Amino acid sequence: EKTLKIVADSEEEAEALAKELAEKYNLEVTIERNPEEEGKYVITIKIKP
C-alpha cells in the first residue's frame, strides 16, 4: 500500500479534489485539517497494490 498526501488551501478545494480522485480513479481518499499550517487541509490518498 502506498500513501500520497496533498495539501489544499481550503476545505472546498480539498473536497472537490478528493471527490474527483475517488470517483475517477477509485481510490480511498480522506481529508483532515493540517496541524502544521492553519487554514490548510491534507488530502490523503491510499493506493492499494
Rank of each mutant, 00 (worst) to 15 (best):
I45P: 01
V7Y: 15
N34T: 06
S10R: 02
K19P: 00
E20A: 14
E12M: 07
E1P: 08
L4T: 06
L4N: 05
K46Y: 07
T3Y: 12
V42A: 02
T3V: 13
T44M: 05
K19I: 06
I47V: 13
I43V: 13
E15Y: 15
K19S: 07
P35M: 13
V29F: 11
E1V: 08
D9E: 10
K46A: 08
N26K: 08
E37F: 14
E28N: 08
K2H: 12
V7W: 12
R33V: 10
T44S: 07
D9R: 07
I47N: 05
E11W: 15
Y41M: 04
E32F: 04
A8T: 10
K2L: 12
K48V: 11
A18Q: 05
K5H: 13
L17G: 01
A8Q: 02
N34Q: 09
E12Q: 11
K48Y: 14
E23C: 13
K46L: 14
E15P: 00
V29D: 00
A14L: 02
I31H: 01
E23P: 02
N34P: 07
A8M: 15
K40L: 03
I47E: 06
E32M: 09
K40A: 07
A16G: 06
K24Q: 06
A16K: 13
K40F: 04
V42S: 03
E32H: 09
E12K: 08
K24F: 08
D9K: 07
K48W: 14
V7E: 13
A8S: 05
V7R: 10
L4M: 11
K46T: 13
R33M: 08
I6V: 08
S10W: 01
E36I: 11
V42E: 04
A16D: 04
K40Q: 11
L21K: 00
L27S: 15
K19Y: 06
E28I: 12
P49D: 12
L21A: 02
A8R: 05
E37D: 13
K2A: 14
K5D: 03
V29E: 00
E28Q: 09
N26T: 04
T3H: 09
A14K: 01
I43G: 00
E13P: 00
I43H: 00
K40G: 12
A18Y: 04
K24T: 04
L17S: 01
E1Q: 10
A22Y: 12
T30F: 08
I6C: 06
V7N: 12
N26Q: 13
E15Q: 13
V7T: 12
D9A: 08
K5M: 12
L17Y: 07
E38A: 05
I45L: 04
E15K: 14
V42R: 02
L27M: 14
P49E: 08
S10I: 01
A22D: 02
K40R: 09
D9G: 12
Y41G: 01
L21M: 07
A14D: 00
E15D: 06
V7A: 09
Y25K: 02
T44Y: 08
I43Y: 01
